[in-house]
Amino acid sequence: MRSYALRTAVTLCFAASLAAAAGAPSSARPTAAPAADTVRQEPRSPVIVDCFWHANVRPADFMLACGDGNSRLTSLHWSKWSTGSASAEGVNVVNDCRPYCAAGKFHSYRVVVRLDRVKPWKKHPEVQHYSRITLEYQGDRPDGFARTVTYPLWD
Rank of each mutant, 00 (worst) to 15 (best):
T8K: 09
T8L: 13
A9W: 07
V10C: 10
V10W: 01
V10N: 01
T11C: 05
L12G: 02
C13M: 09
F14Q: 03
F14E: 00
A16R: 04
L18G: 00
A21E: 04
A22T: 09
G23I: 12
G23E: 05
P25L: 10
P25Q: 11
R29Q: 13
R29A: 10
R29V: 15
T31C: 07
T31M: 07
T31F: 07
A32Y: 03
A33F: 08
P34R: 12
P34A: 09
A35V: 10
A35Q: 10
A36G: 11
D37V: 13
T38R: 08
V39A: 11
R40S: 10
P46D: 05
V47Y: 05
V47H: 01
I48T: 11
V49C: 07
D50R: 04
D50K: 13
W53T: 09
H54R: 15
R58M: 06
R58E: 10
P59T: 12
F62D: 01
L64Q: 03
C66S: 10
G69L: 14
G69D: 06
S71F: 00
S71P: 00
R72H: 08
R72A: 07
L73Q: 02
T74Y: 00
T74K: 05
S75T: 14
K80W: 02
W81F: 02
S82E: 04
T83F: 03
G84H: 01
A86Q: 01
S87Q: 14
E89S: 15
G90D: 12
G90M: 13
N92D: 09
V93N: 01
N95Q: 02
C97K: 02
C97P: 05
C97Y: 04
C101R: 07
C101A: 15
C101M: 10
